[in-house]
């Protein structure tokens, strides 16, 4: 550090001027007087402007309280641009908003027009302490370390190191509370052999003969109704939801297993294999299933294979048949994990 440097100035400058270019390092220019500084009438006008902002603000704030009490909150009014709005909400909100805005606007107008606006330079001192002060602090540290005797008292040193190294251990163990490991739950759904397919939201069994070609049904397993705990129910629903469509059997190019359809009725997972959005955006002419989240597209007439988009895996198919009364049932659970890929799946 150069000691002859004036510490109030940036390096390379002397007496407020850059030594190379000769340009002032803090250019200020001539102080410009404002209209209100010269003309008392202009100052009076600015004063009135500020006062009226504060005055209107006071009226707005009182008005907000009055309209809260007076304006009916069942009345709807038509406001241009805004449309039909609740009169109470609109009047209270507008008046209160205007009220607080005008306090701020008045304060800024006051500062800009009437308060002094002379340019000033605020001088700052050097951030570095004097060399003697720094040497003194270093000396205090050294003396303190010597007084603890940590150099000689080996047993204290070692036990302290041991305690400090164990200190993070409880924190790591407590991470266990983030929940049990998923185990096989990511691979399994509540679908199983003989579970009836029921309509989502209305939970009716589905007769195969009721489905004409082109029909789409959003379905869930019947045993979802047995999962009573709400969180568990949502978890199972999130994995087990399927969509059911009836294709012309002649249109089916391939399936994930021999005879997994029932006379052209195919059941596929509803959970996108990309990041797990529920999808039932089924286009009956192309047999495409489009995920609205990232436009992954699956062909339900061709094993649910990906035909477009970021999904890396086909939609898992659920093998189905009918029971003795003609209602659709699953012949087994899903043969591969549904939903997005996960770490252990490989």
């Amino acid at each position: 550090m150069s000691h002859d440097h004036n510490e109030l100035e940036p390096y390379g400058a002397k007496d407020g001027v850059d030594v190379v270019s000769g340009v002032p390092v803090f250019p200020m220019g001539e102080h410009q007087l404002r209209r209100a500084d010269i003309d008392p009438k202009a100052a009076k006008r600015a004063e009135l402007q500020v006062a009226s902002m504060f005055g209107i603000s006071a009226i707005c704030l009182l008005g907000a309280v009055i309209s809260y009490v007076v304006v009916s909150n069942t009345l709807f009014i038509n406001v241009p641009m805004v449309g039909k709005v609740n009169a109470n909400h609109f009047s209270v909100g507008t008046l209160f908003g205007l009220g607080i805005f005008l306090i701020g606007a008045g304060a800024i107008h006051w500062a800009k027009k009437l308060m002094p606006d002379d340019e000033i330079v605020q001088e700052r001192h050097s951030l570095t302490s004097a060399p003697e002060e720094r040497a003194e602090v270093a000396e205090i540290y050294k003396r303190g370390a010597a007084e603890t005797g940590i150099g000689e008292r080996k047993i204290i040193r070692r036990t302290l190191l041991g305690a400090l190294s164990l200190f993070p251990l409880p924190l790591i163990v407590m991470l266990r509370d983030l929940g049990p490991m998923p185990g096989t739950r990511l691979r399994e759904t509540i679908w199983d052999e003989g579970i009836h397919l029921v309509t989502d939201a209305t939970y009716r069994k589905i007769k195969a003969t009721d489905m004409q070609i082109g029909t789409l049904i959003n379905a869930v397993p019947e045993n979802l109704l047995e999962v009573e705990h709400e969180d568990e129910n949502l978890n199972e629903r999130g994995k087990a939801s399927i969509i059911l469509v009836r294709l012309d059997p002649a249109d089916i190019v391939s399936q994930q297993g021999e005879g997994w359809d029932y006379q052209g009725i195919v059941a596929y997972s509803k959970i996108c294999t990309h990041v797990g959005c529920p999808i039932s955006l089924y286009q009956q002419r192309t047999h495409h299933l489009l995920c609205p989240c990232h436009q992954s597209t699956f062909d339900l007439s061709d094993s649910g294979n990906v035909v477009f988009g970021p999904a890396a895996r086909r939609m898992p198919q659920l093998p189905i048949t009918v029971d003795g009364e003609g209602y659709l049932v699953a012949t087994s659970g899903f043969q591969e994990p549904v939903g997005p890929s996960f770490w252990e799946r490989g």
């Binding site: 309509t199 007769k207 082109g214």
Partner: peptide, 13 residues
């Protein structure tokens, strides 16, 4: 079920 819309017949809905 016009065009690409699937069918929701009275038997299923």
């Amino acid at each position: 079920g016009p065009q690409n819309m699937p069918v929701f017949s009275d038997t299923t809905l």
